[in-house]
């Protein structure tokens, strides 16, 4: 009986954290703790003692529906025939615009539009 009680002390939590304001939450590792309050208060020093941390999530592993190993095998393979939805499939436009003395709208160009001329 005592043994069973002690076993329930060891709950598995997955730990996620965020490094910078722009970074997404990232999985770090897992730990054992009796409940989520304890898990959260131990998580930072276990996994992020040498890095910045702006936020931490702990999620009880049993609350995570991850893919099974079979699902990982069956659901994650993709054929390499999807250039139509990647910029790779439109690279030929660069030459066409060049002929018209214009540049192509690529990632570098578009992301630079963040800065707009002040009036």
């Amino acid at each position: 009986m005592e043994n069973t009680n002690e076993a329930s002390f060891y709950q598995e939590y997955e730990v996620f954290s965020k490094k910078s304001v722009k970074a997404p939450i990232q999985h770090q590792f897992s730990l054992l703790a009796p409940n989520e309050e304890m898990a959260l208060s131990m998580a930072v020093e276990n996994f992020m003692r040498r890095e910045d941390v702006l936020d931490v999530w702990v999620v009880k592993r049993s609350n995570i529906r991850a893919m099974t190993s079979e699902e990982r095998m069956n659901w994650t393979k993709r054929l390499d025939n999807k250039d139509y939805r990647r910029t790779k499939g439109y690279g030929y436009l660069r030459q066409k615009w060049k002929e018209k003395e214009q540049g192509m709208l690529d990632e570098k160009e578009i992301m630079s539009w963040k800065e707009v001329k002040k009036k």
């Binding site: 939805r85 990647r86 439109y90 192509m104 709208l105 578009i110």
Partner: peptide, 30 residues
């Protein structure tokens, strides 16, 4: 893109993803 530095984190992160995809949209349109 003008809001890529927006002060509200969740919006800013959504826009980051969106603008990445917009590169494909621009080229698809072109």
């Amino acid at each position: 893109t003008n809001m890529l530095d927006a002060s509200y984190g969740p919006y800013q992160r959504a826009l980051q993803r969106i603008c990445q995809e917009e590169v494909f949209h621009a080229q698809h349109g072109e």
